[in-house]
């Protein structure tokens, strides 16, 4: 798997039209919920088009999970803001939210017909099977860089989050806030002092 991503300095400043195009296309057509869609967007805006660096992506994704409302839209807004500030944020938000809203209204209007259509349901079954794969691959795409960079942290956080959800039935936001606190308190390795310059 390629993990070549841009650094903050090397990233490209997209046009507003490009932001609208990418977020409208990918935020409105991916099944599997917000995180799965964000994984697809990561491929588009971090790997294929260097609009965001890996660090900026992590920042946007983590903070979008701690923002009220819909995480996916928060991520799109944050990514748009990082790329083009306010105009980018507004364009990304509108592009990510208007088409799916219109589609939801259309399905609401024609719900009875679609509900009774075996063809629609069959196509949906296949799309949802793909969504399961998307969600699992998303978890790997998100976690992989950190599993390599901080294996000890991963060994503590990943099973703890699962246990808190399954056994203590904590809501996701409480688990994520807990993870944020653990991250803040985690011992930080002090940078090694630079070797003393040898007097010539």
């Amino acid at each position: 798997m390629s993990d070549e991503v841009a650094t903050v300095e090397a990233r490209v400043r997209p046009t507003l039209g490009a932001i609208a195009s990418i977020f409208a296309r990918y935020a409105n057509t991916t099944f599997g919920g917000g995180s799965a869609t964000i994984a697809v967007l990561k491929e588009e805006v971090v790997v294929k088009r260097p609009w965001l660096s890996q660090e900026e992506f992590d920042l946007n994704y983590a903070l979008s999970r701690l923002t009220p409302g819909t995480n996916l839209l928060a991520f799109c807004t944050a990514a748009g803001w990082t790329a083009r500030r306010w105009r980018g944020a507004v364009v990304a938000l509108i592009a990510a939210s208007v088409p799916c809203s219109l589609f939801a209204v259309m399905v609401t209007v024609f719900y009875e017909q679609l509900h009774g259509s075996a063809w629609f349901q069959a196509a949906l079954t296949g799309a949802l099977a793909a969504a399961v794969a998307i969600m699992l691959s998303t978890a790997w795409v998100f976690a992989a860089p950190h599993l390599r960079a901080a294996p000890l942290k991963a060994a503590v956080i990943v099973p703890s989050a699962a246990a808190l959800s399954l056994l203590a039935h904590l809501t996701p936001v409480k688990i994520l806030l807990g993870a944020a606190v653990v991250g803040l308190l985690w011992p930080v390795a002090r940078p090694k002092p630079a070797p003393p310059e040898v007097a010539s």
């Binding site: 983590a62 399961v132 699992l136 942290k153 956080i157 653990v182 991250g183």
Partner: peptide, 24 residues
């Protein structure tokens, strides 16, 4: 510390995502 915080939130999110895939 901010980097560490973000790292932990992303790791916890990945864990929750696997759990969310199970009922689906």
């Amino acid at each position: 510390r901010v980097g560490s915080m973000l790292q932990c939130v992303v790791l916890a999110s990945a864990s929750l995502l696997v759990l969310a895939a199970i009922p689906l």
